[in-house]
């Protein structure tokens, strides 16, 4: 009997190894691609160089923060998507479900609207993170303390809708065509032109949030059997709910605040990975984090390679490739979720 067990463990290790290797490859690709056309070997040399050559400035100050953010944000979206789907036991859940993405976007847009974002790098992401916190606080007030996953979804939808409406209002009242263009471009999501200041600001929240969510594996496993059975298995549902809200708010809020709304990664990645981990939520969490990082890093490479005169926005690209993947998944899985 134990032979079985060891076999699954081994294949899980193999999966994690493959995903880690792919993440590394995607990260190196991200460092290697850009208008400067630096060869991968030269890029690695420039990465480690201490001399302030143009190549070193480009690789260390422009491409490295971009690749690191791709890694962090992709992982946060993949992880939180998997956690949300596990928590509400609904394969259509996405990380922004509790209203965090929409309110982070609103906070960021407000800083653009008032022309504050051009003053310092940190103002826009800070506005985004503030927006996320306020949005989620409102969501929790609406949902109440003892809420089930369903009321959480409904309150999240209410907050998302409100934040979306206020974002549209900001666009509607934008003082001039340039600020509306800036808002629209920001909303489409991008990792271009991000600096280490973005990382110092967002990474602590993203990492802390992810750490919190990663502790929920076992609770999410038992939630496969519903909230009642999970509770009788010793799971404290209130603490799980609080942890998932705080974890997702910190990591997805900070991710959205820095990169704008990047859809579909958190929705699609858990689906792609789930069959490889025997559909177990606990194993899906770390695997989905790596999967999200891979998808986002490669997407960010693709937007730089696809030449349409101007760089494609990352959020547009992930939606463009995410939708067909999602449709294919729905068709393939239709029998499972009837």
């Amino acid at each position: 009997m134990n032979v079985h067990t060891h076999k699954t463990t081994l294949s899980y290790r193999a999966l994690m190894l493959v995903l880690t290797a792919l993440t590394l490859i995607a990260f190196i690709c991200s460092l290697s691609v850009g208008p400067a056309g630096i060869k991968t070997v030269d890029m690695l040399y420039a990465l480690l160089s201490v001399e302030p050559s143009t190549a070193a400035v480009i690789v260390q100050e422009i491409r490295l923060p971009r690749a690191l953010l791709g890694l962090l944000i992709g992982a946060a979206l993949g992880l939180c998507g998997a956690a949300m789907q596990g928590y509400v036991r609904n394969p259509l859940a996405e990380p922004g479900l509790i209203g965090v993405s929409a309110s982070a976007a609103l906070g960021a847009v407000i800083t653009i609207y008032f022309g504050l974002s051009a003053m310092y790098v940190w103002i826009l992401p800070f506005g985004g993170m503030l927006g996320a916190s306020i949005g989620v606080a409102v969501m929790m007030a609406i949902a109440g303390r003892e809420s089930s996953a369903l009321t959480l979804i409904l309150a999240g939808v209410a907050v998302s809708t409100m934040a979306g409406a206020l974002t549209s209002l900001a666009l509607n009242l934008a003082p001039n065509p340039f600020s509306s263009l800036e808002i629209v471009f920001w909303l489409l999501g991008s990792l271009a032109n991000r600096s280490f200041e973005h990382i110092w600001l967002a990474a602590p929240f993203i990492l802390a949030g992810m750490a919190l969510v990663l502790t929920l594996g076992r609770a999410l496993d038992s939630l496969s059997l519903g909230e009642d059975t999970a509770a009788t298995l010793g799971i404290d549902l209130r603490s799980v709910r609080l942890k998932i809200i705080l974890g997702v708010t910190a990591s997805v809020g900070a991710a959205t605040a820095v990169a704008g709304a990047i859809g579909f990664v958190g929705l699609v990645v858990p689906h792609l990975i789930r069959p490889f981990v025997g559909h177990r939520p606990s194993r899906l969490l770390p695997a989905s984090a790596l999967g999200g990082a891979i998808l986002l890093l490669f997407s960010d490479v693709a937007v730089r390679l696809i030449s349409l005169g101007v760089e494609l926005k990352l959020g547009v690209f992930t939606a463009l490739i995410g939708t067909p993947i999602f449709l294919w998944l729905i068709l393939r899985m239709r029998h499972q979720y009837v």
Binding site: G115, A118, F178, L181, A192, N193, S195
Partner: peptide
């Protein structure tokens, strides 16, 4: 650049 210029301005400033 303009007041509503590209976000790259901020990273270039910090460089």
């Amino acid at each position: 650049t303009s007041q509503f210029g590209s976000p790259s301005i901020l990273i270039l400033k910090s460089l």
